[in-house]
Simulated assay, not measured.
Amino acid sequence: MNFALSDDQRLLLDTVRRFIDEVLHPLEEQIESTGVLPDEVARRVHAQSKELGLYALNMPEALGGAGLSAVDCMLCEEEFGHTTDILIRRAFGNVYEALLACKGEQVERWLKPAVSGERTCAIAITEPGAGSDAQGIRTTARETAGGWVLNGGKHFISDGLWSDFFLVSARTGDKEISLFIVDKDLPGFRIGKDQAMMGIRGTPHVELFFDDVPLERLALLGERGQGFRMAMQNLGRVRLAQVGARAVGKAAHVLDLMNRFAAERRQFGQPIGDFQMIQQMIADSVIEVNAARLMVHRAAWMIDNGMDARDWISMVKVHAAETLGRVVDRGVQVFGGMGFCKELPIERYYRDARIYRIFDGTSEIHRTVIARSARKLGASLFQLHR
């Protein structure tokens, strides 16, 4: 196996790194203090990223995207992890692969504008009674002569204030879930409160309410009754990117800060990096970050080769999320009192890291998935090449 990066990959990653360092990092402190990314700044960041060809990297070239492989996307997503969530969304886009199911008029109306960044999209599955249990939704879509009528509600919908349309899961029968494209300005569609969060400041997490919202027949994405399957397929790639790869990037960023601080900070006449306990925290972090990184690349390689990566993505989700939590916790410890102060970003990274073990399926849910697969598949799940 060749782990070397090609010249094209190196050029791409260098471009992403420079953009994050020069354009995005200077904006983080303002977002953290105000909780808001101003619209005019968001539009400027978006335009600068598009000019460099960094928007919608995961989408096909034929549609205006970059057409990157899953492995190349994950290399970029790790770099994205070095900045904050809302800046990633504005700069690089949040274009869901589920939109590739668009056909006919849907392509011009929703898919292409999403890829170009003219319109933005959020996915709306989570409900108060249906978090990790995505099949437990109660939102309904009733078929009519002219289309559908949508009723129900969603919550914790990331980026809902900025989005122009939503991919909404709804029951179309007792045992049937379908996926719908819902424009924000439809009658009966109301956006509720923005739920304040412990971390990831600047990213709205809103409630959505649907009161007899009329939908065209065209609003059905894919086939009726296939919404749960489509959502889960889409969320697999999302988990690998937005949780797995970005968690690795965030952990690597904190590890770099730890390592430099341990070399500069002196106690008892020597750098604290000379103390064995500090060395152990750094060494454990290096080991875990690299293990998580290799797991991400393995799962992405499986996707590129047409293999079923669901079990590996669940393993990545657990390991990368929990690695990030452990590394950031060690970071606070290495920085000591300064790690607990808002003057440095370490305490922000600590708060931001906690959600990774919860969203897109909790660690407990994914462990259940892994254990069931282990019982079913046996050694083939434990070995790379069987």
Rank of each mutant, 00 (worst) to 15 (best):
D159S: 12
I88L: 08
Q195E: 06
V238Y: 09
L150T: 02
R372S: 12
F156M: 12
A251R: 11
V316L: 01
V182R: 11
I137W: 07
N94R: 15
G129W: 10
H155A: 12
V149M: 13
R119A: 07
G325P: 06
H155D: 14
R265H: 14
H25E: 13
A291G: 12
S116P: 00
D133F: 13
I355Y: 15
A251S: 12
A299R: 08
A42N: 08
E364P: 07
A320L: 00
T120V: 07
W110S: 03
S6Q: 06
E22K: 14
K50T: 04
N234P: 08
A70P: 08
E127N: 02
R326P: 02
A66P: 03
G225H: 07
T126V: 11
M230T: 12
L75A: 06
N259W: 12
T362A: 09
M1Q: 08
K175D: 15
R326S: 06
L37V: 00
R293A: 12
S132A: 14
T140W: 03
G153P: 00
F180M: 02
M74F: 07
H385M: 15
F166N: 06
A320Y: 05
S69C: 01
E51S: 15
G225M: 03
L5S: 13
F335G: 06
V328N: 11
Q106T: 02
D8K: 14
V168E: 02
A101I: 05
D185N: 13
A70C: 10
R229V: 15
S178E: 00
H297R: 14
T126S: 15
I303H: 09
I31N: 03
I88W: 06
D274F: 09
T362F: 01
D352S: 07
L161T: 12
D14Y: 08
F275H: 10
T362E: 01
A130W: 06
N234D: 12
W148Y: 15
L13K: 08
R386H: 13
F189A: 07
L215V: 07
H25P: 00
R44L: 06
G136W: 04
V206S: 00
A241R: 14
S163D: 05
A98D: 08
K193P: 03
G339S: 07
H205K: 08
A309Y: 09
L27H: 14
I282K: 11
V182I: 04
G331A: 04
A299W: 07
S69P: 01
D183Q: 11
G67L: 02
G67T: 03
A122H: 11
